[in-house]
Each structure stands twice: as structure tokens, then as C-alpha cells.
Amino acid sequence: MKRILIVDDAATVRLFHRAILESAGYAVDEAVNGIEALEKALQSTFDLYLVDVNMPKLDGYGFLRELRGSELPQAPAIMISTEAGARDEQLAYAAGANAYLVKPTRPERLLLLVRMLIGEVPA
């Protein structure tokens, strides 16, 4: 089973994404900020990261930069933001995201991106 780490400080958003991903058969773990996400990434391997931008302690950009700068396996990451602007999207890519989604997330779109990035043949 493919494992996905949701990094978001909002419990509601985590629950929402977890429900979507679990219903599609993914195993989900959660982190409430960038620091906790890094700790989780050190402890176990994930196939994909779903990362919020604005978080306390270490935000999404910070987490991605730390992750990409580390020796950890480099799984793709989707950055989830409330900003639809091209500039924000570029910042996400520069930090190390591989895809960019604007909140509120449409479940089918999220799942499509996840499937593509993880590399699962469509059913």
C-alpha cells in the first residue's frame, strides 16, 4: 500500500484529505507542521507528501527545502495553498514541490494528481 504524509496544521483539512485518500486505498499519516513532518519522514518512508503552505514552527516551503536538501528518499510532493497566483506556484516549485493545488481541494483532482505522481496505472 502506498503511503502518503499529510502535513497541515488544520485538523479539519487533515481529516478531509485523509478521508479522500483512505477511500482511494492509500495509507495516510499526518503531521501538524514542518518539524513534525520531518521527524515522520526520518522515521519512515512515504511515497508522497501533501503539504500545506502556512503552518506554525516550520511552514510548507521550509519543510520542502529541508526535505529536498536532505539525504532522505525524494518522494514527490504536492503543495496545497489558498493562493491561486502564478508567483505562489513558482515559489512552491522552487522550494521543491512537484505539483500545486489550490484549496478547497476537489477530491477527484487531488486523487488524479496523487495517482500520477505516485505512478499507479489507472484502474
Binding site: R68, G69, L72, Q74, G96, N98
Partner: peptide, 8 residues
């Protein structure tokens, strides 16, 4: 972190 970014 560019290498990690490439890898990803």
C-alpha cells in the same frame, strides 16, 4: 536543496 529537487 537543488539535488533533492531534481530527484523528486
Amino acid at each position: 536543496w537543488q539535488l533533492g529537487r531534481l530527484r523528486a
